[in-house]
Design a protein around this nucleic acid. Sequence first.
DNA 1: GATGAATGAGCCTTCATTCAT
DNA 2: GATGAATGAAGGCTCATTCAT
Lengths: 190, 190, 190, 190
Amino acid sequence: MRVKDDIKRDAIIGATISLVNEIGFAASSVSKIAKRADVSPATIYIYFKNKEDLLVSTYVNIKVSMANIILREFDHTMPVRDAIFLAGKRLYTYINGHSELFAFAEQFGNSPYTDLVDKAEIEAPFKPMYELIQHGIEQKIIKDVPFELLFAHLYLPIFNLVNPRLHPNFEVTPEIVETSMHMAWDAIKL
Amino acid sequence: MRVKDDIKRDAIIGATISLVNEIGFAASSVSKIAKRADVSPATIYIYFKNKEDLLVSTYVNIKVSMANIILREFDHTMPVRDAIFLAGKRLYTYINGHSELFAFAEQFGNSPYTDLVDKAEIEAPFKPMYELIQHGIEQKIIKDVPFELLFAHLYLPIFNLVNPRLHPNFEVTPEIVETSMHMAWDAIKL
Amino acid sequence: MRVKDDIKRDAIIGATISLVNEIGFAASSVSKIAKRADVSPATIYIYFKNKEDLLVSTYVNIKVSMANIILREFDHTMPVRDAIFLAGKRLYTYINGHSELFAFAEQFGNSPYTDLVDKAEIEAPFKPMYELIQHGIEQKIIKDVPFELLFAHLYLPIFNLVNPRLHPNFEVTPEIVETSMHMAWDAIKL
Amino acid sequence: MRVKDDIKRDAIIGATISLVNEIGFAASSVSKIAKRADVSPATIYIYFKNKEDLLVSTYVNIKVSMANIILREFDHTMPVRDAIFLAGKRLYTYINGHSELFAFAEQFGNSPYTDLVDKAEIEAPFKPMYELIQHGIEQKIIKDVPFELLFAHLYLPIFNLVNPRLHPNFEVTPEIVETSMHMAWDAIKL
DNA sequence: GATGAATGAGCCTTCATTCAT
DNA sequence: GATGAATGAAGGCTCATTCAT
């Protein structure tokens, strides 16, 4: 028998990402994705249970890989401030180098499909970040407020500004990121 | 007779909002909206050019009314900091009192439909806000960085945290808003 | 090795019968049958030319085995009336003991697939029955009318009443069968 | 607005009947039916809730009309035997004159769709027949056995023989019907 | 012989929109 | 202005069958 082909699976995921970015979430039908992946619609159902599974899997894949790239070799002994700035820079680098993946994730993150995602699976890779923040709070370096608030102020602005759909005329440069990180730090530092 | 028309138009818009919040953007078809508005599908095409027009109009309506409520009687002589905190509080009040409108706007704002919106029309009512910030910069009270950065740090965190889809287990209280505004102020103040 | 083959073939036929009885004729797809038989879809095409062949073969198998059981040791010297009653009782016994096979055959017998069956192959095993009837006619015990008419009056009522789809609230007991055979005999006897 | 068109409804039902008779139940898809009725597939869903509803409605229509034709002006004072023979003749006439309707009903009656039919609705029009039989039993003219048995012996043979799928080489003539009715009467009479 | 991957065709149904009244 | 009927196109998905191993 033929063997399941990772190349084919990747082609399907790739087609999904590029198509969703191009024509939007709602307009991306299974048969269009299949056509772009140069595959029969039926083949998609060999690799994924259904359309929902395809989209969710694609999203989770992206999110996990993003976390791994941003938080790789995260040093617990590094000063909190330095670690946070480092993560910010890496986030920017990631987005710049994988703009398609990022754009897809943003679109997905605000669609109703998000409800179907296992949140725990996505948040797990960010655990080192949580620990870092916790450490900062204990050292009285960071404000003692809910995590959600700290994260929102830290990285949401960049996530938002970098989105071309939301800010078509605003280009995020490394300098902008640097500035944003400084502002964020002012927001969360004690 | 005008009155009758407006009632019907409002019924359609109302049905659109509640349906989208209930079953999501993609599943909200014209005929379902028509049924909920107790109107024929064909009637919708009398008041709106097409589905896209209906959704965009609904969105713009909401955005404009939101700006008006938040920025009403905005006093230019008020200290910058006080004005910004006031806007934050009003934003929270608005979201709490019009959760359906807000939820629709958030869903719309991240759909591909956003591309079809005339950005200028939406941003116009926020002009007083721009002027206030500009004033703060000139007075050396606020950091001299792009507007987009300032706005992103000011209000995005709350917009994000208040979204139940994104934070199903996090409740935003007036205290949280107060805290967030303080953090935001730390971020943007010079 | 032959044994292994036959086991697999029987597994496929068994899966076909049970699945058709469970979810109906139309819903019984080749891949579902394969799954139930614990076999690859492709394997089915080794033992049967196609789906049609699978179904028809299953049907013919059942029909032939049914005839053999009902008419085994059929004694030509036995009085016509006794032989006919005996066949009736055996028919009932068969149906009770092989309700799955019978149910499948009934469903198949009224589907368009029937057209594909070689009628001669199915009717051949019933030859002793034909001869018996013929004998009865010659002896002026049975009405001299077309065979089809005689058979229809003899056994159709039981076939029909025993079908749970057609008579969900009617239970056929040995007494009912006895009664039906008496009525049938009244119908065909001279 | 346009008005719902009984002609169109009838065209759909007619197309359903002729197509099912031609290519069988399973192969009769909604789009093929639509094409034959010279109508869009979507139009079918205006007149019927779904495919199942279309088929069931068609069947019930046929069954009810059949009963009405066979049992019209059924005279309660007529001798039981005469009434039964009359019904038999009318049944034959009906089948001859509406062979398409009859063929559809037979195919439907043995499909899994039958489970979806409200049995009461179909049996109601046959009530006069029930009463006649009941009358015959009370007068000690007919055997005192369950109704189902009596009906099965009375009309099943003809229903079966007249079915060209089951008996492609057997032609039912008025004489055959007459003979069958005589046999049936012998079966049920006391 | 046996397998699971792979497929184009087709399934039922709903869509956004227009037509006729 | 308002309606419900009407539609071609497209939706997600499964089918019977064949391919490559």
